[in-house]
Design a protein around this nucleic acid. Sequence first.
DNA 1: TTGTATGCGTTATCAG
DNA 2: CTGATAACGCATACAA
Lengths: 345, 345
Amino acid sequence: MVKVTQQDIAKVLGVSVMTVSNAFNRPDQLSAGLRQRVLERAAKMGYTGPDAVARQLRSGRTNTFAVVFEERLSYAFSDPFSVAWLAAFSEVMERKRASITLLSVPAGDIDALAAIQDAAVDGIAGLCGDQPAMARARERGLPTVYCTMEARSAEGVPSSGDYVVIDDYAAGVEVGQHLRRLGHRRVFLLAGEAFAGQVPMKEYRRGDVHPSDHLRISGLLDGLAGVDVTIVPIGTNSWAAGQAVGTIVLDRRDRPTAVVAVSDVIALGLMDACRQRGLTPGRDISLVGFDDLPESAAAGLTTIHQPVQDKGRLAAELLLDPERPDRRIVLPHELIVRSSTHPVA
Amino acid sequence: MVKVTQQDIAKVLGVSVMTVSNAFNRPDQLSAGLRQRVLERAAKMGYTGPDAVARQLRSGRTNTFAVVFEERLSYAFSDPFSVAWLAAFSEVMERKRASITLLSVPAGDIDALAAIQDAAVDGIAGLCGDQPAMARARERGLPTVYCTMEARSAEGVPSSGDYVVIDDYAAGVEVGQHLRRLGHRRVFLLAGEAFAGQVPMKEYRRGDVHPSDHLRISGLLDGLAGVDVTIVPIGTNSWAAGQAVGTIVLDRRDRPTAVVAVSDVIALGLMDACRQRGLTPGRDISLVGFDDLPESAAAGLTTIHQPVQDKGRLAAELLLDPERPDRRIVLPHELIVRSSTHPVA
DNA sequence: TTGTATGCGTTATCAG
DNA sequence: CTGATAACGCATACAA
C-alpha cells in the first residue's frame, strides 16, 4: 500500500493539485460539484487526507504545545500537584483545539535535551523552574513558560522567559517564621531532587547550600534565622520518598521538633511514617508542606496554599496568546495553619 | 529575528547545504575541522538547530505517539485507571525516547475527529474501545491499539485494529453470577458514558440496550439471567457521578439489593453516597466495581481485577514494534470478592 | 472558479 | 571527504 498524495489525485482527475488541496481545506474556493468529484475520487484512491506533517511544515504551525517535566512521566501522572496543573492547562488547550505533547527532561540529562530540539511544537510550558530545557527551548525561538521558581540567577531575577509562579522565597520565609514563633529550635528541611549537586538522603547544613539553589529553601533558612537547621534532599518529589525518609528524620536520638517538606506529597508521606512510629503530627512533632493539595486539608497539614489551577490556566493562555501583555506573573500564596504544627513544649 | 536555515549558513561559509546538515547529524561524514567551523558559524548566526517539522517530513517519522481519550483530558488525569495505564505506557515510550501527545476525542464529537487527522504521530493508542477515532486513525494508515473493549461488532469479533483488552463480557458474566448466587433479585447497573444513544441518569430495562452496545453490561445481563435489572448510564466515568447517582439508586422505596458499576471510581463514589445515608455496603446493600484500583482493596470493594500496567506496557510495545507477532491480546482478569458483597437476607 | 509556479527546511542519493 | 540535485506533501501568491 503505497502513499497516495494530492498530486496523484490531481493527475488522475486532470485538475491541479491546488484544487485538490482546496477541496479539503477551503470548500468556498471551488464549485460544490467539483469538490464532490475530488473527494469521491480521493476516497476511491485510498487518499487518507492531508498529511499532518507536510501541512505543519508548510503552514509553520503545529497547533501543539509541549509540557516539560523534570521527572519521569510516570511521576507526572501520580503527583497530585502536576495532575491538577495539567487538568487546568489541558482544559484551556482543549478549548482552543490545541494538542499537548509530554516531554520528560530529567535535570542533568544532557541527552534528553535533544527531545526539546526535536519537539514539533509551537511553544513549551515547563512544570519546573528555569531549567536548561527551558533555556534550550528559548534558543530555538519558542515561546516558553515555566511554573516553578525553585531557583533564580545571582541577581535575584530570573534570566529570561515567561513564567507563572508564586513568590517561593517569601512563602519559605513565612513558614520559617511560623515555626520559629512556635519555639522550634531544631528543624529539618526536606528538599525534592531539584537541588544542584547534592546527594540524596545526605544531611546538609546551612553553609552547604548556595542561597539561590532553591528559593523555598532559601526563604526557609532566612525565616528560621538562628535556628538549628538540617537539609535533606530526598531524591524525588514523591509520597514514597517522604515516607522513606522517616528512617533518617524520625529514628534518631536528636529528633527535630519540626520538619518542613518542599511539597505536600512529601509531607504526607512523612506523616504516614510518623503514624507508623506512633508519633502524632501536631503533638510529638510539627510538619509543614507546600502546595495545599485537597488531601492536605483532611490530613490537617499546615502548608502554603498556591493557586495550581490558575498556574496551569495562565501558562496555557500565555502560550496561546503571544500578544498578551503581562507575561511574568507572580500569583498570591497563603500560609494555611492546620493541626500539624504546634508550639514546642 | 528572522529564521536562519542551513542554506544561509552554507552560503556564508561557501560550503554546500549537505555539509551543514552533516555537521549536525553525521559527524563522521566530514572532517572535524570543517565541522567545528560550521557549528561555530551556525551558532554565531543564531541557527537554532535542525527544524523539527522539516526533519519529520523528510524522514517520514515523528517519533511521537498519540493517546486518545474519549473524555476530556482533565478527566484523564484524575481517573486512577487512566493514570495507571498512562504511567506504564509512558515508561515504555520514555525508554525508547519517544514522546507522547494527548488527544481528546469525545464520542460523538465529529468535529474532534479532525484532531486525529491533524496529529503528527507514528501511531495511536486509545484508552477506549474501537471508537470512530480509532477507525479514522486506521484509515490514515497509522498503527493503532485500543485498550477497552466496551463494544464489538455484530459477529462478536472486533472489526479490525490491534488491541490489548480483557474479556469484558466474561468478566461481566462472572460478576452477574456472583450476585445471583448471593440471592440478589433486584440489581442496578451503572454505566459510564460509553453508551450509544442513551440519556444520562435515565433508567433502562433489559430490552432497551442492544446486546453489543457494551460488553460488560452484556455480560452482566447474561450473568444475571432471570434477575430484575435496571440500567442507568450516569453520563461520565467519575467518582462524582457515582456519588451523585445515589439520589436515583439509593433514595427510593424499591431500593435494589445490589448495584454494579462499570468501574471502581463510580462504585467508590456510590459507596460514599451510601455512607452519607447511613447505609453500610456489604450489609444494607451490595456493591461491585470493575478495575480493582489500589484504593478499592482498602474500601473492601468486590471487583474485577485487571492488569492495567500490562495493558499500558503492551500497548506501547505494539506501537513501537510493528513486527511484533501477537497483536490482539486478551489478558486475564479475576473476580475479587471483598466485603462489599453479601448474601441477601 | 481554476491553474501554475514556488518554497517550507531538511536529508538521501549519487556523483566528484 | 564534499557537493549538486531531487524529493517529502502541501498551501501561498499570483496569474488566468
